[in-house]
């Protein structure tokens, strides 16, 4: 069976194969969230939808930003902007490991030649007030995915438990395509009339953002934005559940959560600018976590969160 699967030739082909694989396995293939986030977990399709009792299955690519990892496009595998592929299924199906291994086959990893291992790695997100148990998945000694059974999100116990898969797309693709420097990786088909490498697409932006992230971003403005997002999040959640205009019960969990995402990303930027001391760090993380918790509290009071009037 494995022999019939051809090797993908480009970064985008790997993404397309994952999309189609998880689509055939019944996931709703969603689009990236339209905000700056540090990881695919922040997408409300994961954070919020892992809460409450309603079943859920989603897969999507999420562009992610980690300002401190910027290396001006020079490091072979570190980027301040990269892609994660994220799958979340609630309740976690009993054959999730097999489903996952199927996705590796789908992108051309031949199980008969490679050594796949599930190595203990418990996941925790202090900013989301979330944790789970699982593994990092190794392929020939390289970490290719994170595999987590969510136990708690936003301070709420997960019932039922979601299974979450996260693939670091660049790293995985570099391995599958046999490329040593991320910028050399074919982005589209190398035989296309206009063949583009990852570097053609992203080298310049890596430089621009590295400079801005590390040296130029206005920290006063960022600090103010952080406070504003924090205040707006609280204000949204303070509103009465019943909307006076429509007369309907509308809990605004998602708009509030957007503010939480914003605050979290601004904190990452401030961190990259080096203006947050070690002691302050904890307090900022605590403030973001408080927002995430209040959004989780609000979400479980919505219909999607399993609330029944």
């Amino acid at each position: 069976m494995d022999q019939t699967i051809t090797k993908p030739r480009s970064f985008q082909e790997i993404i397309l194969r994952l999309q189609s694989y998880w689509a055939t396995k019944g996931c709703a293939v969603m689009q990236p969230y339209d905000m700056e986030v540090g990881a695919g977990t922040f997408h409300p399709a994961t954070t919020l939808r892992s809460l409450g009792s309603k079943p859920w299955a989603a897969a999507y690519v999420q562009p992610s930003r980690r300002p401190t990892d910027g290396r001006y496009g020079e490091n072979p595998n570190r980027l301040q902007h990269y892609y994660q592929y994220q799958v979340l299924i609630k309740p976690s199906p009993p054959d999730l490991q097999e489903l996952y291994l199927g996705s590796l086959r789908a992108i051309g990893i031949d199980m008969a030649l490679h050594d796949i291992r599930f190595v203990e790695d418990d996941w925790e997100s202090p900013t989301l007030g979330a944790w789970g148990l699982g593994w990092e998945v190794w392929c020939d000694g390289m970490e290719v995915s994170q595999f987590t059974y969510f136990q708690q999100v936003g301070g709420h116990d997960c019932h039922p438990v979601s299974g979450e898969l996260t693939y670091g797309l660049e790293r995985l693709a570099m391995y599958v395509l046999g490329v040593d420097h991320v910028m050399d990786m074919p982005y589209n088909d190398p035989d296309a009339p206009i063949a583009l490498s990852y570097g053609d697409v992203f080298r310049q932006t890596e430089q621009e953002y590295s400079r801005w992230n590390f040296d130029v971003a206005d920290t006063d403005v960022l600090l103010r934005h952080f406070e504003e997002a924090e205040a707006e999040c609280a204000r949204i959640l303070e509103q009465a559940e019943d909307d006076p205009k429509t007369g309907k019960r509308i809990v605004m969990a998602h708009p509030a959560y957007d503010q939480c995402i914003k605050a979290s990303h601004i904190f990452n930027l401030l961190d990259a600018r080096g203006v947050i001391s070690v002691t302050e760090r904890q307090s900022y993380i605590g403030r973001v976590r408080a927002l995430a918790k209040s959004c989780a509290d609000a979400f479980v009071m919505t219909e999607a969160g399993g609330y029944a009037a």
């Binding site: 030649l113 490679h114 050594d115 796949i116 392929c139 000694g141």
Partner: peptide, 28 residues
């Protein structure tokens, strides 16, 4: 020395090459 969890038709050549590559990145 690395310890794999399986035998392969190529006597571990692919697995070893992969591990070597990861190690090179780490050691770089």
């Amino acid at each position: 020395i690395t310890v794999a969890n399986r035998e392969t038709a190529d006597h571990g050549a692919t697995i070893l090459a992969g591990n070597q590559k990861v190690l090179s990145a780490r050691l770089s």
